[in-house]
């Protein structure tokens, strides 16, 4: 597979994503500078974590105007797999590819630690290798991961199984104490209504190999690759 990693000015997890796909999972990776206008030839796209445009105005608010974002919208519209991690998630929200917005963490602190998330929907292209309800340990590192949406949209997300990950205790209980940032309904990751766009605050690329002492995050990437292998023979995003 040829996976595109989008590089915005201020992205800083781009090479971690590249490393996982290239060195751990033996895939081709194309680093895509944000000025690119085409994603032709890519099978899937990752928007990595970081501080695009210095988080000026709001996280992800300026990155959404990068030229590559029009191509990403087209790519997503044609069914291509798009995944945003941390700042990538924030950009997808600002771009309207996923619903909702991020608020400052309830604690006001930048929180950098391992958290546990429960797989709420194991039937997505990004979680097919997980068991329903499986608990994954994946680190977070953000100051603005306090997911918010209005009650109507939240009900919609719940009804359509768009909540993919929720913060939980190590034994899988979704509790207030297990919520590291005040996120609504303990939301750690959501998918689009069509299912081919995923946003998540935890960093699976930081927990995808034995060397790092944790391989849980790798399931996200292997799920993605597996669903790309099984997709109908139709080029997306061309």
């Amino acid at each position: 597979m040829n996976i595109g990693v989008i590089v915005f000015p201020g992205s800083n997890c781009d090479h971690d994503c590249e490393h996982v796909f290239k060195d751990v999972l033996a895939q081709n990776v194309t680093m895509v500078w944000h000025k690119e206008k085409s994603l032709v030839g890519l099978d899937g796209v990752i928007l990595p974590g970081g501080f695009s445009y210095g988080d000026y105005l709001r996280t992800g608010a300026i990155a959404r105007f990068s030229p590559v974002m029009s191509a990403i919208k087209e790519f997503a519209k044609s069914g291509g797999l798009v995944m945003g991690v941390c700042n990538g998630f924030q950009i997808l929200l600002e771009a309207g590819l996923l619903p909702g917005a991020m608020l400052r963490n309830r604690s006001l602190h930048f929180v950098c630690k391992d958290v546990h998330v429960r797989v709420e929907n194991a039937a997505t292209p990004f979680t097919g290798a997980c068991k329903p309800g499986q608990v994954l340990k994946i680190p977070i590192a953000h100051a603005e991961g306090n997911y918010y949406t209005d009650p109507v949209m939240l009900a919609g997300l719940q009804a359509n199984a768009q909540i993919v990950f929720r913060y939980c205790t190590p034994d899988g209980r979704v509790t207030l104490e297990a919520n590291p940032n005040g996120s609504l309904d303990n939301i750690a990751g959501i998918r689009s209504a069509e299912g081919n766009v995923l946003g998540m605050m935890p960093h699976p690329e930081r927990s995808a190999e034995e060397l790092m002492g944790n391989e849980d995050g790798r399931l996200i990437f292997t799920s993605m690759l597996e669903s790309l292998r099984n997709r109908p023979l139709k080029m997306v995003g061309a």
């Binding site: 608020l103 400052r104 309830r106 006001l108 918010y148």
Partner: peptide
């Protein structure tokens, strides 16, 4: 400003 009813952690601090 944040809408009324949305928690403002900075304001609280």
């Amino acid at each position: 400003t944040l809408k009324q009813g949305i928690l403002d952690p900075q304001g609280k601090a």
